[in-house]
Design a protein around this nucleic acid. Structure first.
Lengths: 214, 214, 214, 214
DNA sequence: CATGAATGAGTCTTCATTCAT
DNA sequence: AATGAATGAAGACTCATTCAT
């Protein structure tokens, strides 16, 4: 046993426990220093663990990076599916849930957004990224498109292109995330949600107002 | 004179000429390998010049990177101001010009988009980035907001928030760019423009249709 | 364990052990190639260690250099204090001890003298040097001056300037060192000591002869 | 013609003129930055000339360095020979002249002393140095020894070793130079001369007092 | 499982030297 | 003679990965 930040830690912790610890440290390091500036010494230093552990629990640095991204991607997916997967909600409520998930403070904060864009930025990582999240991105895009189709099926939206709305939503999510990361003084989670509802109110006025789902 | 890739090249070119050559090579390298994967050996190799030349014309690798970004940012600004600055156009036509500029193939192609997001992604570079482009981003955002105000002033749009529209446009630009970069099979420049016009048609139906400015 | 130059070496040695090893190698390299000609590749090569180890144990090459000088300066100080600090000796015997220390073969040999003058020579290093050894130089100069005062206090030396003698001694130490380094065929440790005793015999004839302390 | 520091300079100057200009610049640079820190760009910058000129007038950087040292060595030799070579002076006056030369402000100033010790310090340069100045050093040492012999021949100095005095003088010159360079607040040209006369007064009391030659 | 010293390939950067103009 | 852009070898430093303990 030894003490780490005031908490007794079993010197021999479970593998899962250690990995989570390292991933959290990686998120912190990437958000501070970028992917390039993230060294294993830095990550283990933040985690209060020894250097050798990284290559023990993860085969390579790249593996740690990929699992870090996968962790965030999984977290986002769990979040929106948690609500959008409920059978007792209306389509437009589910759509609203997806939007809310993206701009919840536990998801959309500069620490985590920095990690997302670190992966978008590195061409090399982009490959890993796609392998790791393309399926999730498409799953979500398809879900959004399906929900739009459901709204259209309820009548009154003859000219709305459901796929286009889905794509626009994805773009709005990423675009607002980027601007929140870059210009936090000007862009906020709440304002982002408001603008997205405004957009939806333009497309589905019977289901959305600028304030949210009806 | 000597021959390089079949072209006669003056051994001693003007400084500006060489810098442009190196910036072009940097864009190519960054789009292929990311910022981390971009080595000076790679850049000079692409340019067909010798390693030492980068540090001769640019003081450091970072300086080259910053000037590369400044080049892209300047190119985008020149492009949209070219049309949006004309006094013979209506506000909604100017707004359309800004949109068109962002999704013109000479601006919005994967080679260049990769560079933009390489800078967004690196926390360290983000600082350089902001110093270099924040002013341009805000100038454009303000221009968009002002054009929206002009449309509102023409009457009929009581509930539209011009600042919100400006921010949403910026988010749509960045968001579509990212998705064009990540998922080129699913997102295209034309589709992006179409969705943005669709959004504007929802806000300013008297000036825009889903097909573009009236 | 593995074999290096016939000696079993623990792969993981204590930090102090490795640092001493690298400092010894640095002395050898500096004496052979000067400070400029001393590369980390050379130093680690001499030590039979890997390149990266220098920057692991010392932060930078400069740090290694400074610690190398500090090592020599400390060695000299230990040497003269060892005798001059004894309470059972007379002042003139202590003075003689300081002289002897400077021209002992373990201190005054071309390998180590080359390092001293390498630091004197580099303006850049001179700053580090002063920070590192000025205090030791002044401590020694003051000790010499004090010992001269003690001799004068014993009477018979009305016109001797103790501070001047101290300064002259320092100059003689450095000057003979330099000439031993440059012209070993003409200048030797023994001859240097003899000349310095001759000088002291001129100032303090009741305590020194050309052969040494009475 | 162009203007350099207010003086019209023929664009095509004589080779000798240019070389002297570059040597002066080299002295300045070496005294500021050491030999390592002295780049040809720096030297030519100080001289207000173009980079290419160095390799035109001197074959290599090393050649410039050697000629720079040769310049200083020649300057010192000219200085002491100027007086010590006069046939109307007594031996002890000539000896005094050699001492004065070494501590004249035009010779013994920190700018030039830094250059001397830069060469002493670099083992690599030490070879060039010896080739360049060993003869001059020995010529001077022999001259000093001969002058001591002349004093002894005048009678009354049975136990003085002329060669030893010569060597001690050389050591005192170099040693005081070093300390003037390192500790200018504590060591001065005048004090150095005074101590050396004090030494000589101890060896040749009929010819020297602590104040100088009788 | 855990540690952290050790390794060495890979990069940026510097700079003497060359050479077209 | 003079210029300064261009070259490329060489060196300090970084850091993922290995491995003895």
């Amino acid at each position: 046993m030894y003490i780490n930040e005031g908490v007794k830690v079993r010197r021999t912790a479970s593998s899962e426990e250690r990995k989570k610890q390292l991933i959290e440290a990686a998120i912190t390091s990437i958000s501070r220093n970028g992917i390039t500036g993230t060294t294993l010494t830095e990550v283990t230093g933040i985690a209060g663990l020894s250097l050798g552990l990284v290559n023990f629990h993860f085969k390579t640095k790249d593996a740690l990076l990929v699992e870090t991204l996968a962790h965030l991607a999984g977290e986002l997916r769990d979040r929106w599916l948690e609500t959008a997967g409920r059978s007792d909600l209306e389509p437009h409520q589910k759509l609203a849930a997806i939007i809310s998930s993206h701009f919840d403070g536990s998801i959309s904060n500069r620490r985590k957004l920095a990690v997302w864009f670190a992966f978008f930025g590195e061409t090399k990582q982009r490959k890993s990224y796609r392998e790791c999240t393309a399926a999730l991105d498409m799953e979500r895009l398809d879900a959004e498109t399906d929900l739009c189709r459901a709204l259209i099926a309820q009548g009154g939206y003859d000219h709305v292109n459901p796929q286009g709305v889905g794509e626009a939503l994805e773009a709005l999510f990423d675009g607002f995330w980027l601007n929140i990361l870059m210009y936090p003084a000007r862009f906020s989670n709440d304002a982002a949600k408001a603008q997205i509802y405004t957009y939806l109110a333009g497309q589905f006025p019977r289901h959305f107002t600028a304030a949210g789902p009806r």
